[in-house]
């Protein structure tokens, strides 16, 4: 989830363009806010959750806590995207159970590599991010 439309479509374009590896053929669902995510999350299995930290209303840390408390998603890999600004927020996110983080700005390869890495231990299942 990510409140910036351009970032969302950037990420979508990258992920849908992956042709090989764990991310090939993945389906991307966008959430525009924390609430939006909370609407989506309980409804389906997701192989991976990608979230920003600084968002209006519900922030990314709250999303992580929500995701981790939910029985569906307590083990779902959760990657946060954050700007350089707050080491403390990143530390908290990891403490709350985020799997990995990616700093903005990032290049497509970094995104793909990070996501592939967090998906790796789970084996082959096709992800729906």
């Amino acid at each position: 989830m990510e409140d910036s439309a351009s970032t969302r479509s950037f990420i979508r374009a990258i992920l849908e363009g992956v042709r090989e590896g764990a991310l090939a053929g993945c389906t991307v669902q966008e959430a525009t806010s924390g609430f939006d995510a909370m609407r989506l999350l309980p409804r389906g299995p997701y192989d991976l959750v990608l979230t920003d930290i600084n968002m209006p209303d519900i922030n990314g840390l709250e999303v992580i806590q929500f995701v981790r408390k939910s029985p569906h998603h307590k083990d779902t890999p959760l990657v946060i995207i954050s700007t350089q600004t707050s080491e403390r927020d990143i530390a908290r996110a990891l403490a709350l159970g985020a799997t990995a983080y990616l700093r903005k700005p990032f290049v497509p390869e970094e995104l793909v590599a990070t996501l592939e890495r967090v998906l790796a231990p789970k084996g082959g299942a096709a992800p729906h991010g």
């Binding site: 999350l41 409804r43 519900i58 709250e62 939910s70």
Partner: peptide
């Protein structure tokens, strides 16, 4: 200051 979701997400329709 902030919005904190509570509960475990078990309720599909409300938060």
């Amino acid at each position: 200051i902030t919005y904190l979701p509570t509960g475990d997400g078990g309720d599909l329709d409300a938060i």
